[in-house]
Simulated assay, not measured.
Amino acid sequence: MKLSGFINSHTEQIIKQWESVARTLGAPANQLSTTALRDHVKKILQEIALDIVTVQSVRQQKEKIEGTAVVAVDDESAAATHGILRQLSGFSLAQLTAEYRALRAIVLRLWLPQINRISEETTYDMVRFNEAIDQALAESVTTFSDQETRTRDTFLAILGHDLRSPLATMAMAGDSLSRLGEPKDSVRLIGARVVRSAATMNAMVNDLLEYARTQLGGKMPMIMETVNVEEICQAALEDASAAHPDCVFELDTSGNLIDSFDSDRLQQVFSNLLNNAAQYRTTKQPVTICAKGGPEAIIVTVKNLGPVIPSKSLAAIFTPLIQLTVEGQSHSRPSTSLGLGLFIARQITEAHGGTITVESNETAGTIFTVKLPRRKTLQ
């Protein structure tokens, strides 16, 4: 059987085996749904099968061998789209190339037993297949790298813009305070602006430091001690209130909230979630944080009513440097998100052995749920 025909007639079998291998690549591959993991793999196989039987000139073959063939990056290329989606989903370049390595091996392993003898035609099919899959890999790598560059440039642009704003506020406040004869009410107002600007910059710098630590392979240091989660939530609420003075925050607690955690880290988790909720809320409804102590875990939820987060955004919401998009957003929000807050929140939660999830719909709003398993047995 010719290789192109085998690929087309055994596509589902190939993809099923490929998926089982892809699941072993680690996060986020083992966390995606089947649909999200497979995304354009079927179309990539179809394009490879078509490429194998497409007549090519000696010049075209030479360009493929030398790696100088034109790499398609338009919307019609499944491999190109695959590279973009993998970058947005948080895959590494090594994971992307491993997917293609697995696809190549699985196709050949399934096809070769169907061949009675190795002929010139068989060899030609294998050469064309390897050329086609290398071309698809090149397209995916190109768009992956381009998307990564755009993401990094966007991140740096947001960082520069958002740090400049609070710095300008603090500079103007300092200039005003240096003048004599300022009324007391004016001094109080200027002081409040300084506090808000400092809180914004502090949150951004904290996120940057944690992100840098994770990217450099450093282990997140944890200092466990007996703490009251209610007090941590209250401190996070005060941080968020300083950064968002126009937002109403509400705290609700119940059950035993005392256990062994890193209080500073958890405060960063809840502050990031509250800041995120404040940016995407409706102006008429409060942002709520609710902590419930159960026998096996402490569960903290942060809820805001506002535009629904699309499912495609939910799938990548904890990926670093991703800017959240929402549907039907009618109000302007301050651009203070570096795309790191939710990523850091997940890293800290997982370091505590916990989980963080999100759901979003028109009725309930957007709800982040942090589940922290107890480290101490309740008496």
Rank of each mutant, 00 (worst) to 15 (best):
P113Q: 09
L167A: 15
V194I: 14
N130S: 12
G181I: 00
Q147L: 05
R193T: 09
T149K: 12
R196V: 04
Q87K: 08
L110I: 06
L163Y: 02
G160C: 02
G191P: 01
I115G: 08
D162C: 09
S165V: 12
A198R: 05
A102L: 06
L189Q: 15
L137S: 10
P113Y: 03
L85G: 14
L88E: 15
V71Q: 15
S119D: 07
L180H: 09
E66W: 06
Q147D: 12
H82Q: 13
R104M: 07
L110R: 02
A102R: 02
I190W: 00
G191K: 00
L177W: 01
A94G: 12
P183R: 08
H161D: 14
S197A: 15
V141I: 09
M170Q: 06
D175K: 03
S77E: 10
R150P: 01
F91T: 06
I106K: 04
R188T: 11
V127A: 11
E76W: 06
S92V: 05
G90K: 03
I190K: 00
E66N: 13
G90S: 09
V141F: 03
S89T: 06
R150D: 14
F155Q: 04
P113N: 07
S119I: 01
R128G: 04
S92F: 05
S186I: 07
L112H: 08
L177F: 05
L167P: 03
L159M: 11
N130W: 03
L189M: 10
L177G: 07
R150Q: 14
T97N: 07
L159K: 04
L88I: 03
L163D: 11
I158Y: 01
A94H: 11
L177C: 03
K184F: 09
A173D: 11
L88C: 14
G174V: 00
I158E: 02
T200M: 10
R188I: 12
S178A: 14
L88H: 11
Q95K: 05
S89E: 11
D175S: 13
A78E: 14
D75W: 05
L189S: 12
S186R: 08
E131W: 01
F144L: 08
S145T: 15
D134L: 09
L110G: 09
G160H: 04
S176Y: 02
K184G: 05
V195G: 05
E66L: 13
V195K: 10
S176I: 09
T123Y: 04
A138C: 08
L163R: 09
G67H: 10
G83F: 10
G174H: 01
M170W: 00
Q87R: 10
T151V: 07
Q147N: 14
A199K: 00
S89R: 09
T81N: 15
N130Q: 15
S89P: 02
T169Q: 13
L189W: 04
V127S: 13
T143V: 10
F91H: 08
T97S: 05
A132F: 00
D74E: 08
I133N: 05
T122G: 13
R152K: 09
T68W: 07
A94V: 13
S77Q: 10
G191S: 04
